[in-house]
Amino acid sequence: MAVLECIDLEKWYGNVKALNGVNLALEPGRIVGLVGPNGSGKTTLIKLAQHLLTPTHGQILIGGMEPGAETKEIVSYLPDRDFLPGWMNVESLLDFYSDFYPDFDAGRAGQMLDALQIDPHRVFKKLSKGTREKVQLIMTMSRRASVYLLDEPIAGVDPAARDYILRTIISNYSENGLVLLSTHLITDVEPVLDEVVFLKQGHVELHENADALRERTGMSVDGYFREVFRC
């Protein structure tokens, strides 16, 4: 049964159609790459799944429910920007997540912070950009969630940090969890993807198993992406 389902999903911003009749069903236990050029609707789709936006038409369902307080209990979300309160130190952030998310594993988060030698007493806003991104990823991936929505998790970090982030995603997501990972840096994420969804001008251009796509086209996912979205 699909854990994330879109049915004729549309989203308009004024006169601009950001999503145009998206139909999609994503199963648990998969890492799915949501790829597409800028403005194709990736962030809009993820925001709709997290109830940060509401659909203009159609439906989006998480575990069979419309997005709201109940679905946020099972969805772990990483936005594409700094979103944690800058004045709190890392230790306080662990407490915050423990307080509000019953599925947050503070022990696992502590181990990851130790592994990266991040001082939990440091104030969040005083960390370097790369370290802030790592802390945010650690918080997100330390939940035992059913769905992980990761919006451009590797966009702003150096290649070494990208490897760490991808390793963290693979080794920490729940076995029965769905990871929906939006990016346009396909080469970096391709090795971890089970499925890919190509979004083009607000509709699903392709949804396919990553291995099957490589076999069918004789190209890498990145190569096929460049073919489909050639300017």
């Binding site: 997290q50 109830h51 940060l52 709201g68 307080a69 109940e70 946020k72 209990e73 969805v75 979300y77 936005p79 920007r81 700094d82 979103f83 944690l84 309160p85 509000f100 998310y101």
Partner: peptide
């Protein structure tokens, strides 16, 4: 700052109405 700026992404992701 907490609801309408960047921290809103955290606060509106909490499992509360």
């Amino acid at each position: 700052q907490n609801l309408l700026a960047n921290e809103g992404y955290l606060m509106f992701s909490l499992p509360v109405g």
